[in-house]
Design a protein around this nucleic acid. Structure first.
Lengths: 115, 115
DNA sequence: TTATATACCTAAGAAACTGAGGTATATTAT
DNA sequence: ATAATATACCTCAGTTTCTTAGGTATATAA
């Protein structure tokens, strides 16, 4: 899976946001959810996703829980307390970034119409 | 200068868009313009900017023109014909990406309110 | 039985940064 | 005078984050 060159750096934010809404998710589920939400526009590669999940876990933002489903192993991820805090912070950062990009890309835009 | 981890991949788009509006600009001017437009939110590092400009020039999207101003050298960049075409393409890509991010981050948002 | 879907993972290489450094002139502050 | 800041270009080592391609394994559909 692959798609947009702009995702760089926002994958963590995507993961955290989805986990804030869904309580717990496993890796494969995240790739499918993103594909579904974006109508196939953003496709997260597994080579990007799994290292990102492992990193977030190592940073103490996520915890894991393994489940057996039909003889297949699923590794569920969920937010820790620190993880919950980080979501707001990352979302604010993204919001701020998008607004800044708006000012560059669409200089005539009125503030009340900005994101 | 430094700031946001999300700029990755959008620096080229920023450069191309600014040059579409300003006919010709030099490197330092671009860093100042971005800082001004984003109220200091996005600060482009020179270590990122100059290699990006050189790459865009190597790809034939920009041309350069050197000027002397008060014994100081300025290297002005402007869009080539290919560069002009690439702006629309990059902007469309960015727009599409931002919309996709909206659907992930703000799942309840109505389509008519999306970016 | 072969391909696709589900489900995890790693690892080499590429790409785009950061951060720190270098060179040089002009201006402003001490 | 001199030091610091602003202007103006640049490079390069190292880091992060991705892509691409592989590997393992089970379940299901063709």
């Amino acid at each position: 899976m692959s798609s947009n060159a702009l995702i760089k750096g926002s994958l963590q934010t995507i993961i955290l946001k989805l986990l804030e809404e869904n309580e717990k998710m496993y890796g494969y589920e995240i790739t499918q959810k993103v594909k579904e939400l974006t109508a196939g526009e953003i496709k997260i590669t597994e080579g990007a996703l799994y290292p990102a999940l492992h990193k977030l876990e190592a940073e103490g933002l996520l915890t894991t829980e393994i489940q057996q489903v039909d003889n297949r192993v699923r590794k569920y991820y969920s937010l820790t307390k620190d993880g919950h805090k980080e979501v707001s912070s990352k979302l604010a950062e993204l919001q701020s970034f998008v607004e800044s990009m708006q000012r560059i890309i669409n200089p005539g835009l009125k503030p009340e119409f900005s994101l």
